[in-house]
Each structure stands twice: as structure tokens, then as C-alpha cells.
């Protein structure tokens, strides 16, 4: 009895603090959040649509789980195969491509493996593997991790051995590890540019189209979870493919470098 009274009091304290604006929850990947683009987009979204978008910053795997469980109203991720499966299982009504950024290969400025001289992503990875230079992998089943694994596969290298370190952590933590051991790592460009602990690391290789990283938006299926705020999710999608969004996304730079390319198409 006493317990429920106290719990009730605590709950009411929290509820009282909630703002009146319409809220929706969107699960996004760490790399997107770390890019800082969200800080530019969210205030404009609120101004244009009145939507307060609350971001859950998690790995791709967890983002999709949150969507499947109906704990968020939409997801914004970048892992094509997993997205298709998500749709196939009826967790989202559809998939809408919004923009892409790219992955880059980072390593010690001295580049002992010579990855910087490569002409393709495959070549760069083969150079690292041949030199058995320390390589840090996210190892967390995230979109970035899956991308990395697919690149190893296309390079024809089985990444095993002492030099290959799967850290099981987010992009920032993995970059910290790479910085600490002065090793190679594949990162999304945004995370790399925003990263504050570069140490001796430098961007060595970029530009191969296979390194492009497509972001897609998926509203959670209201037929499966009746409580999701589908109206808000649709309103957000409408904004994300608008010209306002295009201008903000294409115009976003860090240290003078453009990070994202808007590529949503009108329906």
C-alpha cells in the first residue's frame, strides 16, 4: 500500500514535467547521432511540424528490435539486408531511402600497411591483412559492422588472427580503441570527423562507391502495434523527404567537409 503511494507520487512528479508538444520516438544508429546532423534537423522539425522527436541512440540490431517490439514509432538505420527482413516480418509499413554518407578507412598517419595507396576498398583491406597490422572491428552486429564484414568477404580475406580485434562496442568506443592501439579501423565519415580523440590516426582511404552507406526510414507498422504514433511517423517522413530537409542535409558540414548526400525520391 505504502509502496504504491510512493510510486504514485514519483510517477506524478515525472508526468508533471512532460511537455505538451506531440512526441514521437525514433530509434537511430549511433553513427547517425554522433554525426551531429540530428542537432540540426530536430529543432527545424519541431518548428515546421510541431513534432518533438525523441531519439533512442542504439546499435542497428537494437534499433530494429525496438521497432519490432513497438517501443518506438519509427527507425532510421543503414543495413539493407536487415531492413528488408524487418519489412518482410511486417514490422514496418514500408522503407524510404533518405540519404547516404560514406565509410572511410582510418589508420596510423605513418600507414605501415600502405592502405592509403590502394585504388579500391578491397585492395586497402588486403594490404592491412597482409601486413597483419592491428585492425579494430566494431564486432557488435551493427550496420557498420555488417558493412565491414561484407567488405572483407568481397576482398576475399578471412579476418582472423591476433591483428583483428573485435571490440564489441559502438563507433566512438571502437575509435577510442583504435586510437589507443594506433590501429586501423573502418568508420563512417561523420563519426570520424566528430571524433575528439584522434591521436596519431588519419583518414587513409575513401571514395570507393562500395563504401557508400544508405540510410532508410521505416515507420513501425500500426497494424501490428496499435499504440504507435503513425500519424507523427508519417508527418516526420513527409518532412524528411522535403526540400527543407534536402537543404539542411546537403548543407551540413564538419570541418568544411560535406557528410551526407540527400537522395530521397518523391513517391
Amino acid at each position: 500500500m505504502k509502496r504504491s503511494v510512493i510510486l504514485g507520487a514519483v510517477v506524478s512528479v515525472f508526468v508533471a514535467g512532460v511537455a505538451a508538444a506531440e512526441e514521437m520516438k525514433m530509434a537511430v544508429t549511433t553513427s547517425f547521432a554522433n554525426s551531429g546532423l540530428a542537432d540540426v534537423l530536430l529543432p527545424q522539425i519541431q518548428a515546421d511540424t510541431g513534432l518533438e522527436v525523441q531519439l533512442l541512440i542504439v546499435g542497428t540490431g537494437q534499433a530494429l528490435r525496438l521497432g519490432a517490439a513497438g517501443d518506438v514509432d519509427a527507425v532510421l538505420v543503414h543495413a539493407r539486408a536487415a531492413e528488408d527482413k524487418f519489412i518482410a516480418e511486417g514490422n514496418a509499413t514500408h522503407r524510404r531511402e533518405i540519404m547516404y554518407n560514406d565509410f572511410v578507412i582510418i589508420g596510423p598517419a605513418g600507414d605501415p600497411a600502405g592502405a592509403g595507396k590502394a585504388t579500391s576498398a578491397d585492395e586497402a583491406l588486403v594490404a592491412i591483412a597482409d601486413a597483419k597490422a592491428p585492425f579494430v572491428s566494431r564486432g557488435d552486429d551493427s550496420g557498420t559492422h555488417k558493412k565491414e564484414l561484407s567488405l572483407w568477404a568481397s576482398a576475399g580475406v578471412e579476418p582472423t588472427g591476433d591483428w583483428y580485434r573485435a571490440v564489441g562496442a559502438g563507433m566512438g568506443a571502437a575509435l577510442n580503441t583504435a586510437s589507443g592501439m594506433n590501429g586501423y579501423i573502418m568508420s563512417d565519415r561523420a563519426s570520424w570527423l566528430k571524433f575528439g580523440n584522434k591521436g596519431d590516426l588519419a583518414l587513409l582511404f575513401a571514395g570507393d562507391p562500395v563504401l557508400f552507406n544508405q540510410y532508410a526510414y521505416m515507420p513501425v507498422n500500426p497494424a501490428k502495434h496499435a499504440h504507435v504514433n503513425n500519424d507523427a511517423a508519417m508527418a516526420l517522413e513527409g518532412w524528411l523527404v522535403s526540400d527543407t530537409a534536402k537543404a539542411l542535409i546537403d548543407g551540413y558540414t564538419i570541418a568544411g567537409e560535406k557528410l551526407f548526400t540527400f537522395n530521397a525520391t518523391a513517391n
Binding site: T30, N34, I57, G170, G172, A173, K194, F195, G196, N197
Partner: peptide, 10 residues
């Protein structure tokens, strides 16, 4: 945790 992840140690 978030700032550490971003490498914003300070």
C-alpha cells in the same frame, strides 16, 4: 557514456 563514445573526453 555518450560523450565518451564521441571521444569528447574533456
Amino acid at each position: 557514456a555518450l560523450e565518451t563514445g564521441k571521444g569528447e573526453f574533456a
